[in-house]
Amino acid sequence: MISLEKIHFAYNGFPVIREVTCRFSRGSFTAILGPNGSGKTTLIRLMNGILFPQQGRIRIGGKDISGFHTRALARQMAYVPQMQQNVFPATVFDTVLLGRNPYIRWSPGKNDRIVTSGIIEQLHLEDIALKDINRLSGGQRQRVFIARALAQEPEIILLDEPTANLDLRHQHEVLGLLKELSRSGITIVMAIHDLNLALKYCSGFMILDQGRQVATGGKEIFSESLLEKVYRVKVKLIKEENETYILPVEPL
C-alpha cells in the first residue's frame, strides 16, 4: 500500500504538483490521467523517489520513503520508464536479471537466475531470452521491462506511459498483463494518456490538471463536464453494457 499526503513539488519555483493526496491499496490498478504538462510523470517520479517532494509525505506500508535505503526501496517498488534505449547491447535474460539487483551483493547467484528464468517463462519471453533487447519490437521490449520489474519482487510497480509507441494489439497485451499482475496482489500505478484504455483496464483513476488533483476514484468520476474542463475538448461519454467509452468530438 502506498499513500501520498499533501504532496507539493515545484521546478525552479514553478509548482508542478500541488497538494496531492491519495491512497493506492494493495492489488489496485490505478491510472494517473491528465493533459500534457499536468504533472503525471512528475508524480510517478516523486512516488519512485527519483524526485523529492518539497512538502508532504509519501509512505509505503506506513513508512516514509525518504527513510528507505535505495536498495530497500527497490525491493518494495519497481519502475518502468517511458522510453529506454540501452547504449550497449544486453540480452533479455540479462536485462530481467538486473531486476534482482536489490538482492545482489556482488554478482547474481543461482537463485537469481532461477527467479529470472521463471519470470521469463511467465511472460512468455523464453524464445527471445538471449536476443539483444535493442532489436526487439516496442511491445516485446515493454514486456521485458515489466519482467525486470517483476524480478524485483516488488509490492508496487510504477509505470510511465507503458503503451506509448505501441500498436493497438500490444497496447492491449501490455495492459492485460498489468491487470493480471494487479489481481495477483501487486499494486500498479501508471501515468497514461489514453482515457479509453485506462477505463477498460484500471480499477482506480486520478485526474490531474496543472498539478492539481481534480478527481480521484472509480469510473464514476468521469463526466463530460469534467473532461471538457480538464482537456478543453468537447467529449461524448458513451456507456454500453458495463463499459464506458470517451469520444473526443472537437477542441473547445
Partner: peptide
C-alpha cells in the same frame, strides 16, 4: 550493467 539502463532505471534498481 544497471547504469547502462539509464539513471532513473538504475536508481529504481537500487543503484
Amino acid at each position: 550493467n544497471a547504469l547502462d539502463s539509464g539513471d532513473e532505471t538504475a536508481r529504481s534498481l537500487g543503484v
